[in-house]
Simulated scan of single mutants.
Amino acid sequence: MFLLVVDAHSKWPEVIPMRSTTAANTIRVLRCLFSRYGLPHEVVSDNGPQFVAEDFAVFLKKNGIKHIKSAVKHPASNGEVERFVQTFKKAMKKAKPDGGDVHLKLARFLLSYRTTPHVVIQETPSKMFMGRDLRTRLSQVRPDLGLKLQQKRALKKDRVRSFEVGERVRVLDFRIHSERWSEGMVTRVLGPVTYQVVVDGIRWKRHVDQIRRMSQCVDSRAEPLRQTVPNTDIYNDRDTITRALTDEDIPNTHTHLIHLRKYLRPKTKVTQNNSNTQSKTSVVQNVTSVNQIVF
């Protein structure tokens, strides 16, 4: 005799050989199952004498389990287990010519059933019940790509550097006439590899490859690992570049403007009879156009 138990959600089966099906033995087996998997909300059973006994009802009531009994002479009321009974009988009948121990046949059947996708849920009972597929001999032949991907991600995650909020760091500086690396402070963590750093009162968004620790020796001429993240505070950087475009900072300003006239085509045309004031106005207009090209 066997006691068959099926989880309604995951279709996970349990088959327990029993010498007798008294209420005491049934309670003993269920107590063992509840110690492994926890107490269920409901138990659905047929109207067997062990399930309608008073001891069984008291056992379920003390554990806060609702007991639902199927209709008399209507097996379809407990169709989940009844269908599994038919599957179990066919499997054991098919394995009968093989000989051997009943426990061995039972173990093979349970492993096969638990690792086979169910027709209703389209997943294996082990995946639904335990959150993973059980390892079988077929798993040794089929490569586990998911496991390799997890290991690769874990190794990559360990190599990623991290910084704390309030930590003093050196960040890559894109401003003109500035040091390659400037000192700043991490003020916010924007993502796994992205940080917000404040430098001279300006908030920048930097990738972890563009940040160095203060204790780390930084060569001002060294290139970063990657330069894929621009500054978030565009307006501050634009003001800086606008201030840099002056006659003192950029040599041969007029030479640059002569080359740009072919493309800009300013409305105010410079002639030989123009006064110095008109020439200065053209220079200012062209400098403004240079700033627009830069951005």
Rank of each mutant, 00 (worst) to 15 (best):
V43Y: 05
L147A: 15
F2R: 06
S220T: 08
T253F: 11
F174W: 11
R36F: 11
F88H: 05
I68Q: 08
D158C: 13
F51N: 06
M130G: 05
D144I: 05
A222G: 12
M185F: 06
D249F: 14
V58H: 11
P230R: 10
V43W: 05
R265S: 11
K11G: 05
S35K: 15
V72N: 03
V29P: 05
V44N: 12
L134V: 09
R226E: 05
G166H: 04
L111Y: 09
N236M: 13
N47Q: 14
T255N: 06
E54W: 03
P117K: 11
L155R: 15
H67P: 04
G99V: 07
V15G: 04
D98V: 02
N236T: 14
H207Y: 01
L134N: 07
L111I: 08
V197K: 00
V141N: 05
V169N: 00
K156P: 00
N286W: 00
L3H: 08
R212I: 00
R31T: 13
V171Y: 00
K127P: 02
M1K: 13
A23N: 04
N25H: 15
R175E: 04
M130P: 02
R28I: 01
I241P: 00
V186E: 01
L260Q: 06
M185V: 13
V171P: 00
A154S: 11
R161Q: 08
E164Q: 14
H103V: 14
Q227M: 14
H254A: 14
F129G: 01
P97C: 03
N63L: 15
A8F: 07
L264Q: 10
L111S: 09
A57L: 06
A57S: 13
P230E: 06
I293H: 02
S45I: 08
D55A: 13
F174K: 15
V169M: 01
P251I: 01
R159Q: 07
V141I: 14
V290E: 00
P17N: 04
T242I: 12
C217N: 12
L138K: 13
R226G: 02
Y37M: 09
N47H: 09
A95N: 05
D219M: 09
K89W: 03
K66R: 15
D209H: 08
P251E: 01
